[in-house]
């Protein structure tokens, strides 16, 4: 199930963002936000009670008008304030259903966007921590890590019994998608590590065991083979922020602002009552 969802969402976003990889990340972000805004409008228009929302908004407007017209009448303004609050609550109620419907796809979208916008690839010469989480005591394990020629393992393994974890520091030497090979209990699997890249580069932070939620949260690489005593191999890439006119912001803020702008800007065009 997780594989199907990851495949569907992964391919969609790969197709959507692939043309913009070499451009400023804001271009890709704008396109994704526009598509997300349209998607939200479409879902919202279909599943929300459009008539009910319109009626509630009209009521709110009427009571706001009442507030202004009868501003000298204490009883009337108190009643109007009460009604504004009441219909606001009703408005929120009308939005609950579409919100619940949209929350799941939105989380999946955010997981996909985090692969593209959340992390910065290593620069050549830069180091990063590689963390292997295990099912067993790492001091008793024969687990080893090997790196492709474009990488250098800088430290001996650091085994932390209490955390069931082995860590290394790895330096990127050559640009490209490099490979780390984890060998344990007679089996091997790889983990990709991206050194340098285009302005918009998809980065898989972790490769995880085949567990539903873990797979959903780390969708870019296949699951760790079964019967391997490893839960997760994680690269602690540096986070990346969107920069606009010297101001830095988390990509999720940029995404929400742009999606809202597109959603509200186009609602009239598509005749959706929000």
């Amino acid at each position: 199930m997780a594989s199907v969802i990851n495949l569907l969402f992964g391919k969609t976003f790969d197709l959507l963002l692939y043309p913009f990889q070499s451009l400023n990340p804001w271009v890709g972000m704008t396109v994704v936000s526009l598509v997300a805004g349209l998607l939200v409008l479409a879902i919202y228009g279909h599943i929300s009670d459009q008539e009910g929302i319109k009626a509630v908004k009209d009521k709110i407007k009427a009571h706001l008008l009442e507030l202004r017209l009868y501003k000298d009448n204490f009883r009337a303004t108190t009643r109007a304030q009460r009604d504004v609050l009441r219909y606001n609550a009703k408005y929120l109620y009308c939005n609950l259903k579409p919100m619940f419907v949209m929350i799941v796809p939105f989380i999946l979208i955010i997981i996909q966007l985090d692969l593209w916008f959340g992390y910065r690839p290593l620069s050549p010469g830069e180091s990063v921590m590689v963390k292997v989480k295990m099912d067993q005591d790492p001091t008793q394990s024969d687990l080893t890590l090997q790196a492709s020629p474009g990488l250098e393992i800088e430290t001996p393994p650091l085994r932390i019994e209490s955390e069931k974890e082995i860590d290394w520091r790895v330096k990127g030497l050559e640009a490209g998608v490099q490979t780390l090979t984890v060998s344990v209990a007679g089996q091997s699997f790889t983990k990709q590590l991206v050194v340098s890249g285009k302005p918009l580069t998809k980065i898989s932070q972790a490769r995880v065991a085949d567990r539903f939620l873990d797979r959903l949260m780390s969708p870019a690489e296949p699951p760790i083979p079964p019967n391997v005593p490893v839960n997760k191999v994680e690269i602690l890439y540096a986070g990346q922020e969107m920069s606009l006119l010297g101001y830095r912001m988390h990509w999720i803020i940029a995404f929400f602002i742009l999606s809202l702008v597109f959603g509200f800007g186009l609602k009239g065009f598509f005749g959706v009552e929000v």
């Binding site: 921590m129 001996p156 393994p157 650091l158 085994r159």
Partner: peptide, 16 residues
Amino acid sequence: PVNPVVKVRIMDQEFI
């Protein structure tokens, strides 16, 4: 336990 290497965890940062 054996290798001359440590990891420091401070606030939300980790480094070897």
